[in-house]
Simulated scan of single mutants.
Amino acid sequence: MKIFAINPGSTGMKAALYEDLEMLWSESVAYSQEEIDRCKGSPEKEELFRFTNSVEILKKHGNGVSELSAVVGRGGLLRPISGGAWIINEEMAADLRSCRYGRHASNFGGLIAKRISEEAGSIPAFIVDPVCVDEMSEVAHVSGMPNLPKRSVFHALNQKAVAYKVAQKMGKHIDQCRFIVAHMGGGVTVGAHCEGKVIDVNNGLGGYGPMSLERAGTVHAWDLIDLCFSGTYSRKEIERMVVGEAGVAAHIGSRDFRKIVERIHSGDVKAKLIVDALAYQIAAEIGSRAVNLYGKVDAVILTGGLANSAYLCDLIRDRVSWISEVICVPGEDELRALVEGAYKVLSGEEEAHVYEKE
């Protein structure tokens, strides 16, 4: 079975073709500023451009849509749904296209996959573990403001894929495991994985939890209210203070973690303090997830781009190794995770979910 995976980003596209679970090729395309400007303000134009670009990537590698057995796209912002593979139907496409639950580049993943499916003669089309996966327990949704319940927005695709792989290495089924998974990158999310479900997790998109390379994480609400009504800042400026120009980058002016660690080894006291704080906050969130799991944890898993830093992982391990074994699974392979999710359905291991509107 040839499975085509697509992962749209804000300024480009990643794609890969697999034969079952063996990758045939992968490609990352960066769009020019001219291409981005041409589509600005017109979601219809952007959708068509991204679809055309996806087909061109296939052709570049000597493949066509007629060869495909299935297509899978990175899921976008939808109503809260459970994990796994979801069939891309008209109801899902309508919610993605209207941006009913928010605007994000990943919304185009499902839309492009659906178009390719139709072009190929209605082959199966899926999304897998989108950021809106919500398996949180009822009590975990409750906040101190009835009209602002806690929302589940996290790195579901990578967290679940990594948990599944670690379970396999342990010789267990995911339904038998209790993990704490910390995805550490541009955003940081820490999930309590209980027998295949993420029963609690911090909201990594402008929500709460640890700071990250460029996101603020939890801040004092009263101080944030004061900033909002000071008359000094626009809404956009406040948004950038929370996501984009916050976190480690706001403190020390860099998002390049390797260079940041080099600065620490060269004696940069401030850089050391901020990275210590980053590790401290991630470790504290891991500790919270241990409470969610009643202290019964098979492993603490560190993943995402920042898990490539032994320096950071060691700082976190020093604080949380009392909870359980700490396993580092650096980086992320979202294209493979998408394919694995689709393959589970195509091979009969799992059933795909069917999306319905609220």
Rank of each mutant, 00 (worst) to 15 (best):
G12V: 07
A30K: 12
K45G: 14
L58A: 10
E19G: 12
V55L: 14
F49V: 05
K14P: 00
L48Q: 08
I57P: 01
E19Y: 07
S32L: 09
F51T: 15
E46S: 08
K45L: 15
S42A: 12
D20F: 10
Y31N: 05
R50L: 06
I36C: 09
G41Y: 03
I57H: 00
A16F: 01
L24N: 03
H61D: 10
T52R: 06
F51C: 09
M23W: 03
A15E: 00
K59D: 04
E47S: 08
L24C: 06
R50E: 00
W25Y: 02
A30N: 11
Y18C: 08
S26H: 03
G62M: 12
I36G: 01
G62Y: 00
Y31K: 07
I57T: 05
M13D: 01
F51E: 10
E47C: 12
L17G: 01
R38T: 04
S10I: 14
L21T: 15
F49A: 07
E56M: 09
E47F: 03
Y18E: 08
N53M: 07
E44P: 03
P8D: 04
L24H: 06
T11L: 14
V55Q: 07
L24Q: 09
R38W: 06
M23N: 03
T11M: 10
E27D: 10
D37F: 01
P8H: 07
K45N: 13
S26Q: 06
E35D: 15
F49Q: 01
P8C: 08
F49C: 07
L17H: 00
T11E: 14
K60F: 05
S10G: 14
N7V: 10
R50C: 04
N7M: 07
L24V: 15
I6M: 03
S42I: 11
E47V: 10
P43H: 02
K59V: 09
E19P: 04
N53W: 01
V29C: 09
L21N: 14
V29K: 01
I6Y: 00
L48K: 12
E27W: 02
S10M: 09
C39L: 08
E44T: 15
E22H: 14
G12E: 06
G9T: 13
A16H: 00
A15L: 07
E34N: 11
E34R: 11
E34P: 06
G12M: 04
D20V: 15
E56G: 08
I6R: 02
T52K: 07
N53P: 01
N7T: 12
R38M: 11
